[in-house]
């Protein structure tokens, strides 16, 4: 099994993500935005950062990179699992691989803080995570307010595609627990084999740095990839 981590010009969480995967013990391949051949990969992570400086709209310019064309094909033809983190989430919505878009935080500022999120439902992409589970993860973004047209929101929840929500420390959904003005406190979205979230699991890998919940989340996703690979072979 091998997982690819993509570096776009301006990605800055690529090294942290590679390190997190090495802690989990997964073989990885570090690839550049210009690569087109993804055939050896069982899954791909688009890490956080400011690809192309977040200029124009965050994620918009990276969505046009050569690797994204190949990624799109791999998702359509062989349901390649893809995980987008923060800027990776923004790139996936701009590329049309996930519904909705991410807008500037409602308060207009970049925000870096610890945030509790709740898993809305169990899913095949994260076999280790159960519905209602709380995770404490860092957020660090200026454009993280998730937005979909109001008609689509029902489907997102009905199909459990809105898989992660911002909550308070007790796990309660409230407007006070929403750090950026996301519609329905949405922190993560999935569709098909593609999942993404605004928080940074790769920064929550050890208790000394604040939390190990990111490790649980990434481990669950890797287990999902591994299960798929096992069944396919």
């Amino acid at each position: 099994m091998k997982i690819g981590v993509v570096t776009f010009p301006g990605s800055n969480c690529d090294a942290d993500t590679l390190e997190a995967l090495s802690v989990i013990g997964v073989p990885v391949r570090h690839l550049f935005h210009e690569e087109r051949d993804l055939d050896d990969l069982d899954a791909v992570i688009l890490p956080g950062g400011f690809s192309y400086g977040d200029y124009l709209r965050s994620g918009a310019l990276a969505a046009k990179a050569p690797v994204m064309r190949s990624l799109w094909v791999a998702v359509q033809t062989r349901q390649l699992p893809v995980l987008g983190i923060c800027n990776g989430f923004q790139i996936l919505t701009e590329a049309g691989l996930l519904p909705g878009s991410l807008r500037a935080n409602a308060h207009g500022e970049f925000r870096c803080a610890w945030q509790t999120v709740r898993v809305t439902a169990a899913s095949a992409l994260f076999p280790g995570l159960s519905a209602g589970e709380l995770l404490r993860l860092p957020i660090a973004h200026g454009e993280g307010a998730y937005y979909v047209a109001s008609g689509e929101l029902g489907q997102l929840f009905g199909d459990h595609e809105a898989w992660l929500q911002y909550v308070d420390d007790q796990g309660m959904l409230s407007v006070w627990a929403n750090p950026n003005g996301s519609v329905a406190n949405i922190a993560g979205v999935m569709r098909g084999s593609v999942a993404a979230l605004m928080p940074h699991p790769e920064r929550a890998m050890m208790a000394e740095l604040g939390s190990t919940d990111g490790r649980r989340l990434l481990q669950a996703w890797v287990d999902g990839v591994r299960g798929r690979t096992f069944h396919a072979s």
């Binding site: 090294a15 942290d16 500022e109 870096c112 660090a140 890998m205 740095l209």
Partner: peptide, 14 residues
């Protein structure tokens, strides 16, 4: 002030 700065990237900040 400081919540507008990313203080955790690079995962060294204890």
């Amino acid at each position: 002030v400081y919540s507008q700065y990313d203080s955790m990237i690079q995962t060294n900040t204890v």
